[in-house]
Design a protein around this nucleic acid. Structure first.
Lengths: 348, 348
DNA sequence: CTGAAAGCGCTTACAG
DNA sequence: CTGAAAGCGCTTACAG
């Protein structure tokens, strides 16, 4: 059962391949092909079950209708959500997604060059990690359509869409402060990424605005250590134990929040009576969790959709309704598990 | 900055394209090309930064080095884990992954035909859902390499790899029974899939073996209703409330477990004192959860790796160390959150 | 209005 | 040992 080719259709319809191609690509009237002939060709194509070979089209046109998606890790709710939505949306524009996760590359020292070298993708959506700057610059220099998600490099002028980290943390801090919390700790990681800096800054600003000191209230884990789960837990545990009068802790990432949960569990602390917790959540992980935790939730759907639109803009598709924007910040939602009642006032 | 082509390399090296092709494809000595010439060509290629155009290779050879991955939903820990591992492993064999989720298709009535019609993939790894039988048959008839994951159709002879559902539930039930639980409920969904049947059967067999009745202890949600989260929760809630002397509940899927948690929360029941819970977990979702829950965990990594190996076998790669096996069942792990101490004996 | 021809970048019989 | 040539299945100037 061989596939029927365009040439087959031409033969059967008794016309030349070019005519078939024009008709099938909707250029019939542009080429002034008679309605009669056009519809006859359409019919034959349909009857024979003709589907153009995308590989041949790609070779000829230089377009593959495939987008490269580079995420940190496909497992993990946030990135999985992003991927799912991007795939859905891309399909609407006739694009497929091939994805690569960078988690190994970073460790094995492999770059996403491997990805780049396969230049059969029409565009890239990338969640940047430190050290990827060079690769992205090459892409840009190569005139490849690129959109960054979740983070960006201040030095590189490329469209990116991410949650408004500063505003998110601010919202969360305001909420905590309003609830009466004063001694609020902040646990972060020394990843050299803008979003981490923004989050820390917002925390500091929020505290300062209230005239609250942040001395000894910030724990910054080393990135390498953080990944050693046990080491991370011990550092957080020690931080929680040795910080006097701690009333609440803000975890700057979802992963840190998990470390925090384990620490709290080990210390036998009760949420939120002994300690309240607030997390800049990757996504909706904490929906599983019992009350006593406040989450800043990132709107994965909005981020993903926007990123794809920005890419479509570059590819000349889409509605261009985003104009010349190259940076979009999306306000985060504030999610509180179990309603705010679970975050009691603190007796000062 | 145009890409260098094979022809360019040939010109620069002063040989014909064929020679370059042979050398670069490691057929130098097979074609009796002199070492000197070969290494010279290699050098030029390297110096010019030559990378073969995969699209051209694909058109010529009919192979794309791309595998199609069809999962139910990419968001969701289990499938995300599967995807990640498959991507990793596939990369080792030089394959990329393009994936499609079926969650929409099912609803919108679209089949994965869209996927099929793009026949530029070399093989398929598919998580089957009801109604996909016909598509899979076509693939087989078309001689496409296919491996099913997580489920299979008894009527179709195609390699598949999944967890041993029966044994998994058996293990879990034995554990509960050993702990002293007798009135154990079972919540499932009327999905017409082998794995669901196996799970129910194991529950029934386990109970029967102990001479325990299962009358009124099984709740089967309608698939459509299950998806309406609120309806599902209400049904489970009502089941929990109206089943007298219920000591424990076995949830047949992860999603059902989530409904169960919400129900338990709403009823104000305390885990595991008022009610113990056991879940056939999609993956490691419940690692987040507090003690009192027992999980049957599916070994995503093993499943994914095995599936890929089976596919590589069909593609003529790999080690063929799986022989002629076309069905692999993997024993599930039994994971108990917070150690078994959290599952107290029941006073009968 | 329509067809013959070139060419996208490779691979691989085939002929020396 | 090496090169000229065909061909994978399309698209698109170009010539009628």
């Amino acid at each position: 059962m061989k596939r029927v080719s365009l040439k087959d259709i031409a033969r059967i319809a008794g016309v030349s391949p070019s005519t078939v191609s024009f008709v099938l690509n909707g250029k019939a009237k542009q080429m002034r092909i008679s309605e009669t002939l056009a519809s006859k060709i359409m019919e034959v194509a349909k009857k024979e079950g003709y589907h153009p070979n995308p590989v041949a089209v790609s070779l000829r046109t230089g377009k593959s209708q495939i987008l490269g998606l580079v995420v940190e890790t496909i497992s993990g709710n946030f990135f999985a959500s992003l991927s799912r939505i991007i795939e859905e949306e891309a399909a609407r524009f006739g694009y497929k997604i091939v994805y690569t996760s960078t988690e190994n590359n970073r460790q094995k020292g492999k770059e996403l060059i491997g990805m780049l070298s396969q230049r059969q993708v029409d565009g890239y959506i990338i969640t940047p990690t430190p050290g990827m700057e060079q690769d992205i610059k090459e892409l840009i220099a190569d005139n490849k359509p690129v959109v960054l998600m979740d983070s960006y490099f201040p030095g590189i002028d490329v469209p990116h869409v991410l949650v408004n980290n500063y505003e998110g943390v601010m919202k969360g801090m305001s909420h905590m402060i309003e609830k009466g919390y004063r001694r609020i700790g902040f646990v972060t990681v020394d990843l050299n990424l803008v979003q981490m800096e923004e989050r820390l800054k917002a925390y500091q600003d929020a505290m300062q605005k209230e005239g609250l000191s942040t001395d000894n209230l910030v724990l910054t884990l080393k990135y390498e250590e953080e990944k050693e789960k046990e080491i991370g837990i011990q550092q957080v545990t020690s931080f929680l134990k040795n910080t006097p009068d701690l009333e609440a802790v803000f975890f700057a990432t979802n992963y840190l929040g998990l470390l925090g949960l384990e620490s709290i569990h080990r210390l036998g602390l009760k949420l939120p009576d002994d300690l309240a917790m607030i997390v800049f959540d990757d996504h909706d992980v904490f929906r599983l969790y019992p009350p006593g935790i406040t989450c800043i939730r990132q709107p994965a759907e909005e981020i993903a959709k926007t990123a794809l639109e920005l890419l479509m803009d570059q590819l000349g598709k889409g509605n261009n309704n985003l104009g010349g924007e190259t940076k979009l910040e999306i306000s985060p939602g504030l999610v509180i598990r179990g309603t705010t009642e679970y975050l009691p006032k603190v007796n000062k």
